[in-house]
Design a protein around this nucleic acid. Structure first.
Length: 829
DNA sequence: ATACATACC
DNA sequence: TACTGGTATGTAT
């Protein structure tokens, strides 16, 4: 079949495995020989088998596309052609050639850094990474076909002398920082793509540069080498005016376009050589690259073009240690694009290339010719992009780096099949993510679990909560459920995993992160729910209700739904909310310290612990109840009083009774003010490179602390990892709040779960009020509480910097919320 | 909203 | 022995 599934290069079969020589320094290699070695090393492996499978999926996609193509009528094509042309005309009219966009890319970055710091590597083929995977290779190694994204063990077969150096990201980050300082001088709004790559808008710099005196365009050799490398180059011998020779990284076949002039006139009186750069774009960019090299002893390549898409392609043109400028004329752009292989365009990868190849499209000129067809076969976004590419269009302004949308961590390991190990690994991942979330002060609503089995099949499972989460326990609660579900689905076979990952996304907007320090009463009152937080799915038809009302309604609903099958166990329970507005700095400090402990997150997974709640709320009168008789959340007895003080004393008594038993109470970690301040400083340092800090970055909620205490009364732990019996399929219980199916049919356990979920929701409506960091909630399992059910407490403390005290008139520095929870509501499927 | 695929470095 | 990890986005359901 002439459908191009087997493409012109004769490697349609397994194009995924074959050498990808679309990379600088890999021209003219013996592809056949290299591919043979790659295949020999891979064949039969699980990885290979999986690649085969995916290749076939792509082929099927292509076949489908070809079928579609075959059904297109002449008329349809004409119409599409016209449509495309209209659009092209439109785009043409908005073509902007006035900007000067530069894409800079450090040459073989990680490898170059390692070579710089270990000159013995200079003349050897080397790569950075491990036997399992390489991040990058130097140009010597590329001659053997060794490149980034290739596993080290295969690279070793291609090049037995290959030296593999482990990655050292801290170092690369440091060097990257130095380079970015230089970027910022040419465009303070530059956008970095990665540690070694950035887009800059040179337009403004060039405009100013025209009137600059020579002095501002003069740069010394080794003027101020602040390279992280310890050793500095001794100036006299090495200050040869040969740019290339300055770099410890040798590029033998460098197509460098930099003349590296600087003849004798470049040697100043001070003895140091210098170079005067001109005012043109090329000179400005060459100057920037020169300065990078002087500062870091590493070389960079650059592309200069009227838009980002072209600049990126251009930076590759004279790599390494070179630059290429595409003139800002329509003619030059169109000429350039005609011969451009589609694969060179950022965004067109292996699969898109293959699909286009199947249609006889390999260069951008073909794209232009086939746009009518493409508009019928590709999605709108896809063909719009292709059309722009074919016209040599791209973004002419460099967008601000958007706020991150997700955060994740994943790990590959040797086969992991034991449930307990999988669960504990899952928790570890959650801990890592939670830590990062805390560092960035983020909270997200969607938790995604990623699994890859030993056959390399990848699965993702996600759940979106009605509220945003950030702590280990919150994230793990979800991830664990997702994982357990997968384990159940596979049972009685175990999941044979080779990778697990946890991602959190759907972050709440920054508005939600910096709300006012609001009265908790707001949550009780109808129509005063936090509008910035989305209303939970099930209740969004009643947005005017307080959370409690909604929760109550939810329960009633469930109750009704299950009236026939479930007896409603407990009567109405009361909840109580108390707070004081004691905002004495001292008190806050002491309670913060009191909560400090050496208990780590992993200590808390099982049983025990928590905190002296009696420190708490000496109520100053402001509270709310919704029933005349109150139920103690600890002992669950009715307390015949409506006086909150009396009631609180009762609870205190209950709690302190419970806490008398040694080792039943442990204090959970709380972040100190000092930590917070340090964290803020770090944030500023990171940000200052790009955008001036927001003026209100230090608003008081940054100083808020929350301690969350969660007490549950059942005897199982929240992180129970007992293997479930999957054979006796009892009724499946679905939590009405989080919608997760529960793997236990024990009603006590189920109720416990629902309680946690409901409470979590409340907690988050409260917690969402403060910018992180928020302490991880502690799930307690105090046997001392026996059968008395589940209680839940939230303590919110606000630590006060002087600034926040000044800027805040009304404070509720210390809030305690307690609501006993009862549930027997459940849902059966 | 979820799952999966593609892409980039 | 051994084929990554982090983020974004597109496509399909």
């Amino acid at each position: 079949m002439e459908n191009g599934v087997n493409n012109s290069k004769g490697e349609g079969f397994l194009s995924r495995m074959a050498l990808n020589d679309n990379k600088a320094g890999m021209e003219g290699l013996d592809r056949d020989k290299i591919n043979k070695i790659i295949m020999e090393s891979s064949k039969g492996s699980r990885f290979y088998e999986n690649e085969l499978k995916r290749e076939q999926q792509v082929n099927q996609r292509i076949e489908k596309m070809m079928l579609q193509k075959a059904q297109i009528t002449e008329q349809q094509l004409k119409k599409a052609q016209a449509e495309v042309e209209r659009m092209a005309t439109e785009l043409e009219r908005s073509r902007d050639l006035s900007r000067v966009i530069v894409h800079v890319d450090m040459d073989a970055f990680y490898a170059a850094v390692e070579i710089r710091d270990c000159p013995e590597l200079k003349d050897k083929p080397m790569a950075v990474g491990s036997m399992s995977m390489l991040s990058t290779s130097n140009y010597h190694a590329r001659k053997y076909g060794v490149r980034a994204a290739m596993p080290g063990f295969i690279a070793k077969k291609l090049c037995p002398n290959l030296v593999i150096v482990p990655t050292n990201f801290a170092k690369y980050r440091a060097v990257s920082g130095e380079v970015r300082e230089i970027f910022a001088e040419y465009d303070p709004h530059f956008q970095s793509v990665s540690l070694d790559e950035a887009y800059l808008d040179f337009t403004d710099h060039l405009e100013q540069r025209q009137s600059w005196p020579e002095s501002l365009r003069t740069h010394r050799f080794h003027a101020s080498s602040t390279a992280t490398g310890e050793e500095q180059i001794k100036l006299p011998q090495e200050a040869v005016p040969e740019e290339k020779d300055l770099s410890p990284v040798l590029f033998d076949d460098s197509p460098s376009s930099s003349p590296c002039l600087s003849g004798p006139e470049g040697v100043g009186a001070a003895g140091g050589a210098f170079e005067v750069f001109g005012t043109s774009v090329e000179e400005a960019v060459r100057e920037m690259r020169f300065r990078i090299e002087q500062k870091t002893m590493l070389t960079a390549s650059a592309g200069i073009a009227p838009n980002m898409m072209l600049a990126k392609v251009c930076s590759d043109k004279n790599k390494p240690n070179g630059q290429y400028r595409l003139p800002s004329t329509r003619e030059a752009v169109m000429d350039f694009v005609q011969n451009l292989p589609v694969r060179k365009v950022s965004g067109i990868g292996k699969v898109s290339e293959k699909m286009l190849n199947a249609l006889g499209i390999s260069s951008c000129s073909h794209l232009g010719q086939q746009m009518g067809l493409l508009s019928l076969l590709f999605s709108e976004t896809a063909w719009h992009h292709l059309l722009q590419v074919s016209l040599g269009l791209g973004s002419t302004f460099i967008p601000r780096h958007e706020e991150r949308k997700s955060m994740s961590t994943e790990r590959t390991f040797k086969e992991l099949s034991k449930v307990e190990e999988q669960l504990s690994l899952c928790r570890e991942l959650c801990e890592d993510v939670a830590e990062d979330m805390k560092e960035e002060g983020l909270k997200g609503k969607t938790v995604t679990l990623k699994l890859k089995n030993v056959s390399f099949e990848v699965k993702t499972r996600a759940l979106t909560l009605p509220y945003a989460v950030a702590t280990v326990d919150e994230i793990f609660a979800v991830a664990k459920d997702l994982l357990k579900t997968e384990i159940d689905n596979e049972s009685p076979q175990p999941l044979r995993l080779r990778l697990m990952g946890v991602r959190i996304s759907a972050f709440v907007s920054s508005d939600d992160k910096k709300p006012l320090q609001r009265s908790i009463i707001g949550f009780l009152q109808p129509g005063k729910t936090d509008s910035s937080e989305e209303v939970p799915r099930q209740t969004c038809d009643q947005p005017k209700q307080s959370f409690f009302q909604r929760a109550h309604a939810k329960r009633l609903q469930l109750q009704a739904a299950n009236a026939s099958t479930q007896e409603e166990g407990l009567g109405e329970k009361a909840f109580v909310i108390t707070y004081t507005d004691t905002c004495a700095q001292k008190g806050v400090e002491s309670s913060t310290k009191a909560n400090k402990s050496n208990c780590t997150a992993s200590d808390l997974s099982e049983n025990d612990y928590v905190s002296p709640i009696e420190a708490h709320a000496s109520t100053s009168g402001c509270g709310a109840t919704v029933s005349e008789s109150l139920t103690c959340p600890v002992c669950f007895r009715q307390v015949e009083t409506t006086d909150l003080n009396v009631f609180n004393r009762h609870i205190d008594q209950c709690l302190s009774d419970a806490s008398i038993k040694p080792n039943q109470w442990t204090v959970f970690d709380t972040e100190s003010d000092l930590d917070l301040e340090n964290h803020q400083k770090e944030c500023e340092e990171v940000e200052s490179n790009r955008v001036p800090p927001q003026e209100d970055q230090h608003s008081l909620e940054n100083d808020s602390l929350q301690t969350v205490l969660l007490i549950n009364g059942d005897n199982k732990t929240a992180t129970s990892s007992q293997p479930q019996s999957h054979n006796d399929k009892g009724p499946i219980l679905i939590c009405p709040v989080c919608q997760l199916s529960q793997d236990s049919d024990d009603l006590t356990i189920f109720n416990h779960h629902v309680d946690l979920c409901l409470n979590r929701e409340v907690l988050h409506e409260l917690g969402g009020q403060t910018l992180s960091p928020i302490n991880p909630p502690s799930v307690i399992n105090s046997k001392a509480l026996g059968e008395c059910g589940t209680a839940f407490c939230v303590f919110s403390q606000t630590s006060h910097s002087l600034q926040s005290l000044r800027s805040c008139s009304v404070l509720f520095p210390y809030q305690a919320v307690m609501f006993p929870v009862r549930t027997l509501s459940m849902m059966q499927v």
